[in-house]
Design a protein around this nucleic acid. Structure first.
Lengths: 229, 229
DNA sequence: GACATTTTTTGATTTAAGTCAAGGCAAGCC
DNA sequence: GGCTTGCCTTGACTTAAATCAAAAAATGTC
């Protein structure tokens, strides 16, 4: 439980809260350990609470009838997920599965709701988290409908760059197959775009390591662009 | 101002609040009247508050560099919009424009934030609104990436059906061109799909009035489907 | 009613990306 | 070593939807 306290106090969602508030949150939290590729919850499941990644990696995804998956998010340490049904309806709107062995913190709905009502600052933090997520979704919809796949890939690689604050060499946090799904496409298409970009001297690919060779071209592509075939 | 009070008290966001709380909200609210096709705000604008539609219709949309637009939402009476920057960063993540002459209620950021801190139930309502919106976005992303255009149209028409609680005859709330953008496509494609569906006896189209002739087929299409050409 | 403007439809063509099928490559295992 | 397994790449082909261009309807205005 001590470890849980340490994790909880370092989470952005709970930043700025008093030690007493963190203590109260820790008191209602439980820990879950899951191996790789385990289901956390399934779309439509009644939600009795939400989760925070303490360690590991979780993907949130939707499935079409014929089994194709669209990854909505990949969450890592410190990031909460599954909070939507806390406040709107009681069912999870998507699926969650671990990508690697993970440790999750579970916060029960009822208990957490009670805390929220008592601590306005907690509610404000929660509002900030949801708003930021809404903004990300806005960008994702924009990307899906306004950009072609190369543009989405360029935007993602540049995002990774800033994320890992590397100037030009990044490591994909997920397999290329998973990346394809995150970008709303399929592995074959992604592979072809990787090699096309390489041919044009924009990037170099070595397994999961990507080096950005021509940042300006990548930025243009991410903004609007079309890949010159 | 009396009229503003009436509007505010009928808004879901403020449901369950005491008359005193509604009064406090009314006190900080101002009204804006806008003609058709007027810009409410532009992506990147610093947000000094958010809006509620009192009367009329507002579209929220993103633009690509070459001017193509993707409509994210259409909001009607009673619906708040532009609240994201209230809590995350200070800039609007998309554009807003009136579709018809509209009356909007504006709530200044600072004043509203103060109210939120004082009234936990208001914060809880806000959390519910944002969560619901997040869920809608989840569905929209799913639709954009997992379904083809006919499937998206079918899903939208069925949604309209339940919305207007009509058994089989619905009226499009927006022009077909706007609908195309909402569905992530272009007018030509939408038009062709309308006539293909009509040929197959699934629907009948008469201007903005659509009758669902074969509900089962529409439901299948909305679920996964492909249009049999 | 007639005019001008906007919206919708239709046709011909191009193109991005999906599908199907096969092969390559690396990692781990017996 | 040879073998399986999972992941990635390549090639040939198909297809949904975008683009370009123009006509046809609908709508509002004087």
């Amino acid at each position: 439980m001590d470890k849980t306290f340490a994790v909880i106090s370092s989470i952005p969602l709970f930043s700025g809260l008093s030690p007493g508030q963190i203590e109260a949150i820790t008191a209602i939290a439980t820990e879950k350990r899951l191996a790789r590729n385990q289901t956390v919850f399934t779309e439509g499941d009644p939600a009795r609470g939400f989760f925070i990644v303490a360690e590991g990696k979780v993907k949130i995804f939707k499935l079409s009838i014929d089994g194709k998956e669209q990854i909505l998010h990949i969450y890592g340490p410190g990031q909460p997920f599954g909070e939507v049904p806390m406040f709107a309806g009681g069912k999870f709107p998507a699926n969650a599965q671990t990508l690697v062995a993970s440790r999750l913190i579970f916060l029960p709905r009822r208990d957490f709701a009670r805390l929220l009502a008592v601590h306005p600052s907690l509610a404000m933090n929660m509002l900030a988290v949801l708003s930021r997520r809404l903004r990300e979704f806005t960008v994702q919809i924009e990307n899906l409908s306004l950009k072609e796949v190369p543009g989405r890939l360029a935007a993602y690689l540049l995002y990774l760059c800033s994320e890992q604050d590397a100037s030009d060499k990044v490591r994909l946090p997920i397999s290329k197959g998973q990346l394809a799904s995150l970008l709303g496409t399929i592995p074959e298409t992604l592979s072809r775009i990787f090699s096309k970009m390489t041919d044009q001297g924009m990037i170099n690919v070595r397994g999961r390591w990507i080096t950005i060779a021509n940042r300006q071209a990548m930025e243009e592509l991410a903004l609007e662009g079309r890949l010159i075939v």
